[in-house]
């Protein structure tokens, strides 16, 4: 089963990380990523810009409305995701637990099984 592991946290808190904290968390996460990539279980990983950079297109009958900002005003924002291929939900939860160890503190990982997946592959890494 393919799972998306969606990362939620207060983006304000994440934005307040010092460079050292940021670097440490990113390198700890990269270590987890390497492990799962080596096992052939890791797909694309994405980190999103802050919601202030977001634009939302709302569908409405007959027209669409483009508004500034994220889809929903919430305490915790959707910050990024990992895509993993796991035998079981437990395995996916274990993966998220490893992420939580690499990046401790508050926030949440939502584990969502995928229904459709089109890997693309035409894009360059950022």
């Amino acid at each position: 089963m393919l799972y998306a592991v969606l990362c939620y946290n207060s983006e304000e808190a994440v934005a307040a990380w010092s460079r050292e904290e940021e670097d440490r968390v990113m390198s700890d996460l990269a270590a987890v990523e390497r492990k799962y990539a080596a096992a052939g279980k890791l797909g694309p990983v994405a980190r999103l810009m802050p919601t202030t950079a977001a634009t939302t297109l709302r569908k409405a009958p007959g027209e669409t409305i483009v508004v500034d900002g994220p889809f929903a005003e919430t305490k915790e924002q959707f910050l990024g995701f990992f895509l993993v291929d796991m035998e079981t939900l437990d395995a996916a939860i274990d993966f998220a637990k490893e992420l939580a160890v690499a990046n401790p503190g508050v926030g949440a990982y939502e584990i969502r099984p995928l229904r459709v997946f089109k890997p693309g592959g035409a894009l360059e890494a950022l």
Partner: peptide, 20 residues
Amino acid sequence: RLARLLLRLFPSEPEIMGLT
């Protein structure tokens, strides 16, 4: 940080986007 705060409070102000 303050500019981002303003931008979250006033997400549709192009000048705040510009400032940030």
